[in-house]
Nucleic acid binder design. Sequence first.
DNA 1: TAACGACGGTACGGTTGCGTCGCGACGCGT
DNA 2: ACGCGTCGCGACGCAACCGTACCGTCGTTA
Lengths: 210, 210
Amino acid sequence: MVVEKKRSPVGAAVLRDDITVAIRGAVVAELAEVGYGRLSIEAVARRAGVSKAAVYRRWRSKLDLVLDLVSATAGRNLPLLDTGSLLGDLELLLQVMARALQHRMALQIIPDLLAEAARTPQIAEKLHQTLEDYQRTIGLVVIGRAVERGELSAATDQRLAVDLIVGPIYWRLAITRTPLGTAEVRRAAEMIVAALQVAGAGPDAPEAEV
Amino acid sequence: MVVEKKRSPVGAAVLRDDITVAIRGAVVAELAEVGYGRLSIEAVARRAGVSKAAVYRRWRSKLDLVLDLVSATAGRNLPLLDTGSLLGDLELLLQVMARALQHRMALQIIPDLLAEAARTPQIAEKLHQTLEDYQRTIGLVVIGRAVERGELSAATDQRLAVDLIVGPIYWRLAITRTPLGTAEVRRAAEMIVAALQVAGAGPDAPEAEV
DNA sequence: TAACGACGGTACGGTTGCGTCGCGACGCGT
DNA sequence: ACGCGTCGCGACGCAACCGTACCGTCGTTA
């Protein structure tokens, strides 16, 4: 018993998927090429081979466009396989991250949006939430699993731990843009394990801001 | 960088320093507010209370303007005091970095320029060179000193070591923008020391790219 | 005191993007 | 066969910047 009001759902004149897809692709390309700051609807439409009106029919502004894109992309989570040891899990995670961060598009767009987040609250919120999810996943799965195995103290500061894991590889690949070999990833994993093992002290007294 | 021609040094009509300073300040402010992508000479001149012509008399383009600014700012090096131990040096370094990265301007401008570097070779080169100097300094002074003390193996991979030191704090403050307490900095320093100590293995066989 | 050159101000024509509108055409359900 | 809403296309007025040019003014130095 479908009670929907077919009152005025349209017939054959519906937003065409192929055009929507083309626009999304064009946004990604433009974002990589000129950045969010210089992104223009005109250029997006031009690149997608589409009229401006077609874009405005779907999204009200370039902010909407980008937020939507981030939402769609952010959904893809890393499969965190259980290798049986903290070192193994960590090395795998770093390898996956390294692979993702070597992609040209990612390397252009991610830092750009992160920088833009500093002045556009909506972007900041969306990215922050995505990052938070990502980091919590790492914390719970990788660290949590290691705690269950007895490899790490239960008092491990997850936030700090995640910083230690994610920070170096992001810095290396996205900031300094220096190539990273597999052997180096392995050694980095070993070093991080050592770091995590001395973190058992856990958070103590209330802290002063720096 | 204001060029001075000595041959026929002009009379009283010389580029005024106060105006140069005003423009520089305006560039920083604009850079923080709208980013490099949206930076316009018009806005800079407006903000500095100066005519566009005054800007063009000193710099040919906004790229020149920014490159000059980066050169001027990058000169300021961190004073790396010798505290007598790797842990002490590291904690001090992290505290100084944390302080620098908490400044609002830095937090807006640095990620923005780093992102822009991905598409503007001149900016990339200048920043890369600055970063390289900075990292080499950390490597030589902090790590080198610890090696002399016998705290670290001489085979320590300096590049990886620096990634481990700088990455986490940059990630935490500039990317996730989460506050960082002094006690956390201390614990992070301890963790990093542990990581560096297991890095003695040094670089081994030739590596495949990820 | 005369010359020089940067000063602020102002204006120029040209380019780019904005967001909206109307046109005729198209194709698909009713 | 009809009507719907999308399609591409083109045009609109408006705004921001671009880079350059020309003013009359001003302070210094030769």
